[in-house]
Design a protein around this nucleic acid. Sequence first.
DNA 1: TTGAAAACCACGAATTCCCATGGTATCCAC
DNA 2: GTGGATACCATGGGAATTCGTGGTTTTCAA
Lengths: 171, 171
Amino acid sequence: MPGDFRGESIHKVDPKGRVSIPAPFRHELMRADPNCPEGGNPSFVIVYGFDDQPMLECYTMEGAARIAAAIRRMPRSNPNRKRIQRKYQTKSVTLQVDENGRLVLPAKLREKIGIDGNAVFAGMGDTFEIWSTADYEMDDGDMATEFNESGDALNESMDADLDRYTDDVVF
Amino acid sequence: MPGDFRGESIHKVDPKGRVSIPAPFRHELMRADPNCPEGGNPSFVIVYGFDDQPMLECYTMEGAARIAAAIRRMPRSNPNRKRIQRKYQTKSVTLQVDENGRLVLPAKLREKIGIDGNAVFAGMGDTFEIWSTADYEMDDGDMATEFNESGDALNESMDADLDRYTDDVVF
DNA sequence: TTGAAAACCACGAATTCCCATGGTATCCAC
DNA sequence: GTGGATACCATGGGAATTCGTGGTTTTCAA
C-alpha cells in the first residue's frame, strides 16, 4: 500500500544537521519500514539525484523497495536502466530516525539544497520532499494559481486533468 | 460510492481549535472510512490549497483515496501532476474525529480562513466546506440569485445546465 | 589525541486524552 | 397524550503525553 504523506511544515536545522521529522511523517515511516522494531526507529531513503530541483525526495523503505524491484525487472539492454540506477540508487542514502524523532542531514545534502537554518517538509502522497525555505517559496509561487496571470485557465486545466484521471465508476 | 453531505450549520470553535462536526456529517465520514473501527472515530482529509477562496474543503477517506489514485495514474511528465499534488496532498491534513465528535482545527488552518469563534459547515454532496461566518455570508450573497441584477436570466441558465447534465434514468 | 559523529539527557510548549455538563430530541409505558 | 426516562448532541476544563528543540557526554576513527 502506498504511503500517505500530507501537509507541509517547517523545522529548525541545527549546526550538526539535526532536524525533527514532522510527527505524522514519522509514523508513516514506521508503518512502512518492515524491519522497524515495534516502537523503534524507522529507516528511510533520501534521493538527491533530482538535478533540476533543489530538493531531497524521501521514500519509505517500502517505496524504495518498490523502485528497486522495478529496476530489477528492467532489461539490462535498456539504456535507461543504468540512468535510473544512478538517480535512485547511486545518488541516495539510507538514514535512520534517531531516538528523538530527528534525522541527521549529512553536510553534502545540506549544501545540495542550500539549507539556511530551516527546512520545509512537503508531503507528496507516497513520498515527501525537503526544501530550504527560500527555494520552497519560489516553487510554491510557481505552483500557485492565485497570482498567475492566467490563473483561471490554469485552474481549469488542472481540474480537467484531475477529472480525466479520476475513475468515475458510478454505483 | 460518493458521499451525501447536505445542509449547513454553525458551531463554536474553542481556543484550542476544537469544533463539533455536524452529527450527520460525522456519520457520513464513518461510513466512508474503511479503516474506521466499528463505532470508532473516523479520519478524514482537509484540503486548504484553494487559494482563491477562504475555506477548507473536507474529503472522506474514500474521496481522498480517489484523488490519490487519480494522481498515481497521471503521467509524471504532465506538469499539472505536481501542481495537483501540491494542492491536494501538500496543502492538506489528515485529521481524526475525537471521542466527542469534534475535530481540532490546527492554528494554521484557523488563520487561513479567518476563524473568529464560529465555523460554518456547508454540505456539498461528496465533500463539505468549512468557512468563517463572515466569509460564508459574503460567498452566500454572491451565489444567491434573488438579488442579482439579472436574477431571472441566471436562474434560467442554472436550470438549463441542471437539465443538460441530468441523467434521466428512472428508478 | 583530537575532531567529528553518535548517543544520551532535559525541558517548555503545544497537543491529545479523559472526564464532566447542560440541553434537546426521542422513545416508551401508563 | 403526558410524564419520565433515555439516548445523543454540543461544549467546557484539566491532566497527561507528545513534540520540537537545545545541551552535554560518549564513542570512534584518523
